[in-house]
């Protein structure tokens, strides 16, 4: 799992049931203050869905969407496990840093 994928996955988890294309992008942009390319984000979403970290279902269609339905993404338990692992790995590494380094 790449860094960008991890961010997208975490955002989907944060939004919890409200995660679809626009909301995920907006959330990353406001929360992290970085520009997100739609292409990169959409590819990441689809790839993670294929890997089984995410699952998706169609939601409601609104007028400002030109009558097109939303696709809501939710994190699967496999996705959660992957996030947990990623976090653990980091922590393990953080813990291994000698205290002296930050002094």
């Amino acid at each position: 799992m790449g860094e960008f994928e991890e961010i997208v996955l975490l955002t989907v988890a944060i939004l919890h049931g409200e995660a679809y294309g626009v909301s995920v992008r907006k959330d990353i942009e406001t929360r992290l203050g970085r520009k997100v390319s739609v292409g990169a984000m959409q590819t990441a979403l689809r790839r993670m869905e294929q890997k089984g970290f995410l699952k998706s279902e169609f939601g409601e269609a609104t007028k400002e969407r030109g009558g097109k339905r939303k696709r809501y993404f939710t994190i699967t338990s496999f996705g959660k496990k992957a996030l947990q692992e990623a976090k653990d790995t980091r922590l393990q590494l953080w813990n291994a840093i000698p205290k002296v380094v930050f002094e």
Binding site: Y20, G21, V38, A61, T62, E64, R65, G66, K68, R69
Partner: peptide, 16 residues
């Protein structure tokens, strides 16, 4: 397979 929702996203962002 993914055309509908991305197109919707595009339009939504555009209108906004």
């Amino acid at each position: 397979d993914i055309r509908e929702d991305i197109e919707g996203d595009l339009l939504e962002s555009f209108n906004e």
